[in-house]
Every structure is written in C-alpha cells, then in structure tokens.
Design a protein around this nucleic acid. Structure first.
Lengths: 148, 148
DNA sequence: ATGATTTAATTCACATGTTAAGTAATCATG
DNA sequence: CATGATTACTTAACATGTGAATTAAATCAT
C-alpha cells in the first residue's frame, strides 16, 4: 500500500516506470527480430511505402536527430531502408526496402497482439483516457508545438 | 485537431512525449548545476543523510544497475557521494557528502517550484489521477513487483 | 568445513540520449 | 548574382540504456 510520494517528482518517476513497463512488453519480440525498439519505431513509421524526411521521422518516433542519423545508418547498412532523391538536397528522405517491409510484416501482427493484451489488462477506456491525459499534459507544457 | 492515432502503440508514443515534456521542465535548471537528470535523481534519493545500496537506488531512480555504477563513479569523482562500509561486502552502500547535500539544497527549491508550476498548469487533481493511472498501468503489466 | 549455488555489483560492447559545433544547401535581400 | 542568414542534417564528445558475461562475496547442501 501507500505508494508513497517519496519524491517531489513522483510524476517523473511514474512516467519512467510506466514507460519501462510498456516497452518491456515489446522489447523481447522486437529484439528477436534483431531490432531495438527505436529502430522498430522508425520502421513502423515508414511501413506501407511511406517516405519521410529526418525531421518528420524524428518527431513521429520521438527520437532526437543525432540518434536518428545513427539509426538510419544502421538500418541502411542492413538494407532495410534507402535514401530517396529529393529536390531540396539538404533533406534526407528515406523509405523501406522490400526487406524492410518484409521485416515489418514479420513483427507487426504479434506486436498488435501485445498491444491488445495491454488494453485487455488495463482496460480499453482507461487506456484511451490515459493517452488523452498524457497528451494534454504535454500540451500544457509545450504550448507551441506543431503536431508532427 | 484530431491527434490522430497514427501508430498502434500510441500509448508508447504518448508516454515518451509526456516524459520528454516533463523532464524538459527540469533539465536546464539541473544542468546549470552541472548534473544530468539521472544524477539529480540519485542525489535527491540520497538527500537528508539517506544511505542506500545500489539495488535499492536503481529501483527508486529507475536507472539500470550498469548505468548506476557509472553515475556513482562520476558523483564520487566530484566528491558528491561516498561509499559507506557494510557487513555484506558485496553491497555498495553510498551516501551524500557535505558537498552533495549542499548541491542538493542549492537545486531543490527551484525544482519544487517547477514541479508546482506543472501542477498549476495541468491541474492538481488531474495530476494525482494521472500518477495513479500510471502506477496502475505498471501494476497491470508487472504483477510481481516489490515496491522499491 | 568444502564445494556448488546464489546474490550484488561491475565490466564489456554496442545502441541511444543530449548538447554543442560543424557542413552544406537554400533563402532573403540588396 | 553575391552574400549573410536560415534551414536540415551530420559529427563529435560524453552520458546513459541495455543485455550478456564476469567477479567477488555470501549462502546452502551436504
């Protein structure tokens, strides 16, 4: 009992623990496919032929640009993503290769099942409310953010 | 509008974004004192003369043991923490030095103010509910966890 | 007591987080 | 069209995240 408010930032701790608990549900399955969770977020964002530049990808995957540079390099070395030519040659737009799409498909179904299992355990409505609450918290703290 | 559920794991993304938004409120202030947020969590957990072993500290701060080993080494090199002798010599129990306590004090008050500002922006009751919800989510996914 | 097992930390290797600085392409302006 | 500012990314340096292997100390089973 009494999940005591040991720290002033119990919110920070609660967020860290919740994130750990949720990501732990996926890490083993994704890891067996040879991907980190961050690499998986990138692949999923690109699934279905989507072409995205680094900035958009970074926003959607919640990965900082320097990390994304390395992640894309790793994925490119494994022939999972390729660069797409662009007019603005500063931009780096990438898309999945056939191997990348195939790897996505091989992971996706079980990933969905695990997500559904979380919904079942926690409650679908509660989970929706939680996501809404988390997004509102972010909105309160980052008043001027364009939706990625 | 329409914060679209782009990904199956919108919960994961929402958790990541919320964590980023919250920690961003503290990072600059803590960073000006020469600490990372992880180092700050460790110092705060030890504030007031508390002596803790590595395992307990890792649980409370939500930091993995290998990271904590390095963090404690860094803090010890700056004379912010010291090792405490123990009966069981496998354990590494540490406490803050006077410098460590002083650094804690110099950061603590503003940190509390920033936490209160989050409460004001988001709502005190909503924040309490959110923490409860996050902890319940964790409890659903980690059925067998002793409270750190 | 002695050897097998378990436990608490650490080390290692690699991936990512984070900030600051650097690079190249584009844009705005004169 | 030259040039200074801006933009999109990358690189660099250091700190942490993560899983596997390792070390050292305590515990257990004879």
């Amino acid at each position: 009992m009494a999940e005591a408010p040991r720290y002033d930032d119990s919110l920070t701790i609660a967020l860290l623990r919740a994130r750990d608990a949720v990501t732990a549900q996926f890490r083993d399955h994704v890891g067996e496919a040879g991907l980190t969770l961050q690499q998986w977020r990138v692949i999923r964002a690109l699934a279905g032929g989507t072409e995205l530049d680094t900035t958009t990808l970074a926003n959607r995957c919640v990965i900082l640009a320097p990390s994304l540079t390395r992640i894309i390099r790793h994925l490119a070395e494994r022939n999972l993503v390729v660069k797409v030519p662009t007019r603005d040659r500063r931009q780096r737009v990438v898309r999945l290769t056939q191997d990348g799409e195939a790897l996505f498909t091989s992971i996706w179904e079980v990933s969905q099942q695990k997500y559904a299992a979380i919904e079942d355990a926690f409650g679908r409505a509660e989970m929706r409310d939680l996501v809404v609450s988390l997004n509102r918290l972010r909105a309160c703290l980052e008043p001027d953010e364009a939706p990625g």
